[in-house]
Amino acid sequence: MDDSTSITLEAIHLLFSGDTELWAIIGVSFQVSTTAILISVPPALIIAFILAYADFPGRRLLISIFNTLLAVPAVVIGLTFYLLLSRQGILGDWRLLFTQSAMVMGQAALSFPILVAMGHAAFQAIDKRAWETARTLGANRIRAFYTVMKEARFGLLAALFSAYGRIIAEVGASMMLGGNILNYTRNIPTAIALETSKGEFSQGIALGLVLIILAFTLNTFLQYFQGKGHLSN
């Protein structure tokens, strides 16, 4: 239809004309999601590693728990943190509700089980001998861990990208915890939800395009990276 063509053209125009409001929204998205990932990656990787390599009672139960957490909808995570951070909640004194910090908390919690579950699978795919060889050749635990991560890098990178892709496109928890405040907690998905509710589709499409371009870039990068890995074999 002529209408949708013109909306798309307008969206592209918005993106490349440097519309400040639009780019502020994109900035919030990347800032919040990147912070969330940076916070959750180190502990998640360590847990994933321990689950894959160490043998201790309750290990299988923990794996099941993390796999279950994968299926928890974002709004439930949002609601949980909302209750914790709300005035009447346990952490109400922190006054964090409707701030970027609250969004970071929610997104970190969302990405955590993805990183653990996919990270666990990635580590499991790497032979236990990798760790043992590193250790017997004199590597300390940190260096040996780093070595195994290097061996498992394709799987770990896939875990990282999936987690990032999920949280940057997630609307429920961001809306509840951030409150969609313009120039502060309005990110790409909450803005799309809002623009659609206002009946203004072009900005929504422009922001959707950003997400699609991001997904495409990450996937291409991963493909290229994996391809390179295979070639050197």
């Binding site: 509700l97 409707f98 409150g179 502060y184």
Partner: peptide
């Protein structure tokens, strides 16, 4: 200013946010 916050949400949610903030 940062004091004026456009939140783009329904009335009920806005009342909730106003109470929290």
């Amino acid at each position: 200013s940062k004091a004026y916050r456009e939140v783009g949400q329904g009335m009920g949610k806005v009342l909730q946010m106003a109470a929290e903030l």
